[in-house]
Design a binder for these strands. Structure first.
Lengths: 239, 239
DNA sequence: GAGTGGTCTAGACCACGCA
DNA sequence: GCGTGGTCTAGACCACTCT
């Protein structure tokens, strides 16, 4: 099967079909997919081919398989989403769970930098979430989050927002965050940081610039975090 | 086959056998392994089982497969090793290649912190590499690297050291770095940093603390880097 | 016991690299 | 044209979960 347009393996086609169905919400987060046998019959391929695809999607964190039970759409639950994308920890490696501090949600026109980052055009509107996150009850991170308003209708009325936004995106807006690019730098705390985080102005803090991408490959969230670095570190494993 | 000791799938056993052979240096970096058929015959399993293992080891960056040619031990080449573990970039994402600045290599007794980090015991010796790395000809990063001397005999005589140490570890000492845990924080530049990196004392810089682990699962390198953050960022993709 | 995913096998055929 | 990995199939049996 070597077409002019190039050859596309069966398992790739099956992969795309299943991803498309997840995007369309055919199965909801936490729900089970049909069994391998059923999918194979339905798609007219062998069970082995379906298995290869389901295994790959599991490796991509999109599905979860449980022997004896079935294959499920992975959920961005509290702990899972947190440990996957929230990288702040104590020096030495102990992972931390932030709690919610005060926050403000606004809707406004996108600025030039935001248009560029999120592939928006003039006149598009964005949601701005400005919030503080606490660790052990003490302010630790200030986050400024920008979302394309078109994809998140009514989000400004959902106050108070949950601690794990990605779970909200997934269940309420059918947007699965699958990867995020982060850029870190060190900056001096401003007077504003002093008020927000309780560190003296001029103290070095971490600036984390994140662009989160959805399963549909859309740039869905731009998040700039300012994190205290006195007793916190950004922890990541390179493989 | 449900033993008391627990059941160990065939493909796991095959996985371990092949990893062991790589550790022992049965095949050198860049060399080809026997074909799937040959391995299957040799190990007394089916080709499908061998394939499953080789695919997994490829995903772990230990092997490389090339259709029509064979399966090869992955090499820590200049560009590969650099892009895998060197995360400094320009804001916006452009990856950078550092060049070698001045460096000093010493051998001395391990300090308490080093013993703890590298699982050493009293009296063990370490190699200390202290070097500057340049970006666009300008000092950008100062690295302090600690290795257990026992694993790197004669490394102090190899001056000048190559830019990519992991390639040296792999080819000369049969030590494959497969993962690294990094912890980042923001600190103020010291007078020493001012001299090394050309930033004013007090300027925020990135402090990167890395523990690198080998295929044998040994803690093999402790590296503390101090990086200018004025026109450089630490870039990472979370998935 | 029925149904699910997990392991393992055997074999056919395709795509690629090279001599 | 041969040898390599890449795709795809069909089927057997095992391990786990639930009823």
């Amino acid at each position: 099967m070597s077409d002019i347009a190039g050859y596309r393996p069966l398992y790739r086609q099956v992969h795309d079909i299943i991803v498309r169905k997840v995007v369309q919400g055919v199965w909801k987060p936490g729900e089970a997919l049909p069994s391998e046998q059923a999918l194979a019959r339905e798609l007219g391929v062998s069970q082995g081919t379906v298995r290869k695809v389901l295994d790959a999607l599991t490796a991509e964190n999109l599905l979860e398989r449980r022997q004896g039970k079935g294959t499920f759409i992975a959920e961005h639950t509290q702990e899972r989403a947190l440990f996957r994308f929230f990288r702040m920890a104590r020096p030495g490696g102990e992972r931390l769970t932030p709690t919610r501090g005060k926050g403000v949600v606004k809707i406004r026109a996108a600025r030039a930098a935001e248009q560029a980052k999120l592939d928006l055009t003039r006149g598009d509107r964005v949601v701005e979430i400005d919030r503080i996150r606490l660790i052990d009850g003490r302010p630790a991170i200030r986050e400024l989050i920008i979302l394309p308003a078109a994809h998140f209708p009514g989000i400004e009325k959902r106050s108070p927002l949950p601690n794990t936004l990605y779970s909200l995106y997934q269940t309420e807006y059918r947007i699965n965050i699958v990867s995020a690019q982060e850029e870190l730098s060190a900056v001096a705390a401003t007077a504003r940081d002093e008020a927000d985080l309780g560190v003296a102005a001029g103290t070095p803090i971490l600036l984390i610039d994140r662009l989160a991408v959805s399963l549909q490959d859309l740039k869905v969230e731009w998040r700039v975090s300012r994190a205290r670095s006195d007793d916190l570190v950004y922890a990541v494993t390179l493989t």
